[in-house]
Amino acid sequence: MQNIKIQASNVHVYYGDNHAIKDVSVDIQDNTVTSFIGPSGCGKSTFLRCLNRMNDTIDICRVEGNIDLDGENIYDRRVDPVQLRAKVGMVFQKPNPFPKSIYDNVAYGPRIHGTAAGRAELDEIVEKSLRKAAIWDEVKDRLNAAGTGLSGGQQQRLCIARAIATSPEVLLMDEPCSALDPIATAQVEELIHELRESFSVVIVTHSMQQAARVSQKTAFFHLGNVIEFGDTTQIFNNPKNKKTQDYITGRIG
């Protein structure tokens, strides 16, 4: 049994009058890949975005309940959301490199957080992050080239490198492969497998096969509720709930 990294209990999220997340409790374990699956609009991305307070940027959004990271409530007044997001990094659906060089994309986080003592250390962080994101060999000779000039798959791995450059403890991935071709998808999946050694990974995906392949835990969201949460093998082989079964076998949309 792994340690619990994030403990979300009785979380409710409202967008104005819309009750988007209803009493969701999920534990995210250390060094584990947890996937959130469910039909569009079920709240899985909304819930993912609660885990590093990305929803703070939306005025009408209100979060209730408790989300603890290593036992500390991340919605506590004293928590700085920027610091929090360094610890809980995020990778988005569409690769979104900054219009900067490959190097500067990765160095961005360490620079604003002041993680590196000097240029040499920053170089080291950039190389380490790019290596971890399995893209170093492809870009090492053109670190000053624009990040936006890379292929889609490379851009996504660059974004992963950028997210891990601040040494996060948790990595949130919101459909990280949906804009990628099958080869790039396989590379990102291989990467997720390796990243698990260092972080907890939470991934939102529309591909059931992907969830089954990359994760050890799976939560099925439906209409803002978590219908079933358990070991991935159990969820996909023998779900206990009929709604889960209907969704993963393609019977409800």
Binding site: M208, N237, N238, I248
Partner: peptide
């Protein structure tokens, strides 16, 4: 073709 899951796969 269908990548069956759960009951269908069984």
């Amino acid at each position: 073709l269908r990548q069956p899951m759960a009951l269908d796969l069984r």
